[in-house]
Design a protein around this nucleic acid. Structure first.
Lengths: 340, 340
DNA sequence: TTCAATTTTGCAAGCGCTTGCATTTTTATG
DNA sequence: CATAAAAATGCAAGCGCTTGCAAAATTGAA
């Protein structure tokens, strides 16, 4: 293992090349201000000397960070439990899209507002902008943060009052489609599995209610199950729920992971999916097409979402004030709903 | 949406408070060098003025970055396709553990060696250290990088010749266990699904071969299927493979995602798991316990892995040269192997 | 050969923050 | 009240890089 070679700076290179630091800077930046020959020579020297530019200094001088902070507002300590592939995909898209614009992604463990540095009354500004992937239970924190810092885009439930830029799926519409689909298949008693404390899930709940109302069906509170995102917990929570069968013949799950957990419990109880119970999920995570039964679900256009968020953030960085966007969703019919 | 308020600096705060910049700096850092009263007053002013410290400048002065670069060496452009929950979990653990040590995580789109800045002959040093999650097809790149930059830890296949610090699961042992398990269940013709070009998969292949040899069974090349990680592609690749049935009665899959894809194809072809074919995966991703049949798999201790990597990286940053670690794996018996 | 026009290079200030050391203020003691 | 010791503050020099502007070197034409 190699020991840290004491960092070589531009000054060093300058000395080696017998030119000034500014010439090195320009040469390495490919400026046409420095003679092509010199530029080459300097590049060469820099390479041999194993020079790495100090991005911090560079960015300080340039007054930029070229970094965007991406925050997954997941309860602290729970992060370990995420595993919802939705998040990876989103992160992947964001990383890619931001990369295209020359930005790096900084993931920090904790949201900027719960800085815990002792006696520290200020937020750290380490990025040119922030993307929140999901509002979680932190709406008001995010709002405050956005008011103070401006350069913010959030993924989540889009609602009229927002004074910051939100990009999100059409949760209401998606859930309505999903529920309606089951109703049209003749199911009458459809359960809702999700955590309505989260704004997006709240919207999905609305869509679910809409669909029921449109079919003149009542909302049976005992079939609205507060189910967390985490698959292990979802499994536990849906355990007692399945015992309610046959009081329900359909399930709208707020995420594919929840659907998977629920189906596992149903099978375990000897209840057949989709014969006895029709199940529709949300997200369209990659494995939903490959599990058995494959899961009918509401597709979220994650790639498009990531692109739009980045695009909007860039707009904000340039001084604009882009509008929020609602992204349409699509029902992907597979086996779990029983539509053949 | 708020417009960018022109950044307020320490100088501004100093002026407002009628003290020098250095006092502000110390006050905000909670130094006992400045009178408690003054400290409070300054904090107050800073808060009201909505001051954010410029971490870049701070870090420059402090000669640190407090940032670790985490790289998932996934082919460029493919990133979108990851979705393997293994990665999220790893990322989550790393983010958490590094956070505990006061480090942020920088995810960059591309590995440091394929910087594409025009005319740029140098690497950007933007982090105090680098963690590679997987060596992928980039072993030699990583080795070069490690030689030059030192502060590197990689997750992947641990092998004797490494001159950098590697942390990895006992792939050989895990695969051997998995395969042996099926052999003990009476299976004779076990297929291998994975991409042996990747060092870790190569090791798993070794373990697989070991087990077969120990049982005096030949290695049937036609049952060694080059299967990529991506679930969609895995599904495609294993499609023609299942038609070989009944030439095989067991499958060792290099990841749970591959196992899930293979099982989907088997079922589609009317082949029963585990009755007709016994399947064992690798990783123990969260959903493997909840799909049907639940997947017997080799558990990777991701949390421990993340902790160890961070611990080792910290060691390196302090000038040490920690040893590589092999982390033992564990066979989790569920339904897909047919062991009841 | 001379001088203006051009091309290359270097100087020095500045990015926003930290910190060693000197200076000033406060406190305690004789 | 003087004075030494202790506490609080400020000065100024960095951290490694960029860049406007001035200076030096080169070129070309007269």
């Amino acid at each position: 293992m190699m020991r840290r070679t004491t960092e070589v700076t531009m000054g060093d290179i300058a000395r080696m090349a017998g030119v000034s630091e500014s010439t090195v800077s320009r040469a390495l930046a490919g400026s046409s201000l420095v003679a092509a020959k010199t530029r080459q020579r300097i590049s060469e020297i820099a390479r041999n000397a194993n020079f790495s530019i100090n991005e911090q200094a560079r960015n300080l001088a340039l007054k930029q960070t070229r970094t965007i902070e991406v925050i997954f507002p997941i309860e602290r300590g729970t992060l370990q439990q995420v595993s919802d592939p939705f998040f990876v995909d989103m992160l992947a898209v964001l990383t890619d899209e931001l990369g295209k614009h020359g930005y790096d992604v900084l993931m920090s463990r904790s949201p900027p507002w719960d800085e815990d540095r002792p006696g520290c009354a200020f937020l750290g500004a380490r990025a040119d902008g922030v993307i929140f992937v999901g509002q979680g239970r932190h709406r008001s924190d995010i709002r405050d943060f956005a008011r103070k810092h401006g350069k913010v885009v959030v993924w989540g439930a889009v609602s009229p009052g927002d004074d910051y830029c939100v990009v999100g799926s059409d949760n209401v519409g998606g859930a309505r489609m999903a529920t309606t689909h089951m109703l049209q298949l003749g199911r009458k008693r459809i359960a809702f599995l999700g955590d309505t404390d989260l704004p997006e899930m709240r919207q999905r709940f609305e869509g679910y209610c809409d669909a029921l109302k449109a079919h003149d069906l009542p909302i049976d509170e005992s079939l609205v199950i507060h189910t967390p995102f985490d698959i292990e917990k979802a499994r536990e929570v849906s355990q007692p729920f399945v015992e309610l069968f046959p009081r329900f013949d359909g399930i709208f799950a707020c995420s594919d992971m929840i659907a998977i957990a629920a189906i596992a419990n149903l099978r375990q109880a000897g209840i057949k999916v989709p014969e006895d119970v029709s199940v529709v999920g949300f997200d369209d995570i990659p494995s939903s097409a490959h599990v058995s039964p494959s899961i009918t679900t509401v597709h979220q256009r994650i790639h498009r979402a990531g692109m739009l968020m980045v695009e909007r953030l860039m707009g904000i960085l340039e001084g604009g004030a882009p509008e929020p966007v609602v992204i349409e969703t699509e029902l992907i019919v597979r086996q779990s709903c029983g539509a053949h």
